[in-house]
Design a protein around this nucleic acid. Structure first.
Lengths: 205, 205
DNA sequence: CTCAAAATGAACTGGCCAGTTTATAATTGA
DNA sequence: TCAATTATAAACTGGCCAGTTCATTTTGAG
């Protein structure tokens, strides 16, 4: 079969391993996940797994990076950046909240935070492919807003971080400390609208 | 010796064990700390340790609770609640930032977050003796501000969470993901002032 | 059909650690 | 001074797990 292979499969079982690892890591955490479990979940022998990935940490990093990329791609371009400013802010905040409260968002955060002492690259990698990327997007948007005369901002970086932080108010601590497992649309809306109101009160022109 | 004992020592080696546990947990995390290490750090035999505490988790919970209490006591009443409103907000935010960026604040957060799946009471206990307590204090203060005509707030709880969140902007992610280890007074001031400005823009009367 | 590369599984190594036990010693208080 | 309580060291149990090895089977390309 020259082309048109039904399954592209880059390195045979590679993706299969990644997928199994994703599942197990996300449900058990880094320390909690055993390599035997991952191999089983991936329908692959342990030896095969180790032929693709040098060790457990590397495997985890790969999973985290892949997932971040997937999420970023999925999130970008869902938003109409030319809508009225409050609308755009609302949509961005909603996107961020939805990600943060997703099973994946929560687990990856938990793992990165919990493990980043014994495993520092992990935190950094995640920060760069997550929060930092978002901040960049926000700053771009703010600059356009200022140019159009909708916004008045001096410290763009701070403004972006503030908006990001505001979008998680209340929800984030409750989630991270396992007080609540997920939130209704209304609960999210309350926080998102609160963030937009506050942001515009401070930076609206 | 009827009284005047040089060392009060409640349950003999009890405090000694707690102190050793504090040290080791704070530097190695929950999973990372071995009970043998703790016993060694406390200058106590493992058997003695287990005669005071039924297991490692319980010991950790005790350490966390004790530390939270200590911090709370230390923080409260450092602030002059009758100063001008911006001043009070500034001082509260500074207090929160200092706590959050302290070695203890950072580690306890890391542990609570990382472990709270396999150990749910932990997250809850911490939330209640930390963030929730702060929120209560903030709401009390806001209510006075509204009564005096300095503030105009509808959703007090949200306002408190927003202020709390704003006070960590930028610093928190950088700290938690191990990008930066600690911050200069200036870096903290930038964020604290940013939080106060934003809060007053939104809720100032 | 053949053969080399890839995959398998199952056993194995070496290491870590929570929690227990035991025989012995120090501390205490009366 | 003499039990009774409390502490100690060290060995031990049982369990978990990362990573390796190897003899065997599967796969797929030519």
């Amino acid at each position: 079969m020259p082309d048109g292979t039904i399954e592209p499969k880059k390195g045979r079982k590679f993706d299969q391993v990644l997928e199994g690892a994703r599942t197990v890591f996300l449900s058990d955490g880094f320390e909690g996940a055993s390599v035997d479990d991952i191999a089983r979940a991936a329908n692959v022998s342990k030896a095969t797994l180790y032929s693709y990935f040098p060790d457990k940490r590397f495997l985890f990093m790969q999973v985290a990076k892949t997932e971040c990329q997937r999420q970023a791609d999925l999130a970008i371009e869902t938003i109409d950046m030319d809508a009225p400013i409050r609308q755009v802010l609302h949509d961005i905040a909603t996107e961020m909240v939805d990600f943060m409260t997703s099973q994946f968002g929560k687990q990856i955060f938990r793992i990165c935070v919990g493990e980043s002492d014994r495993f520092p690259e992990l935190g950094r990698e995640f920060y760069e492919s997550g929060p930092m990327l978002i901040r960049g997007k926000l700053i771009d948007f703010f600059e356009k807003g200022v140019a159009r005369g909708d916004l008045k901002i001096d410290d763009f970086e701070l403004a972006a971080e503030q908006f990001h932080e505001l979008s998680k108010a209340d929800l984030f601590p409750k989630m991270v400390f396992n007080i609540v497992d997920d939130f209704s649309r209304d609960e999210k809306e309350r926080v998102v609208n609160g963030a937009v109101d506050m942001f515009m009160a401070r930076y609206g022109a």
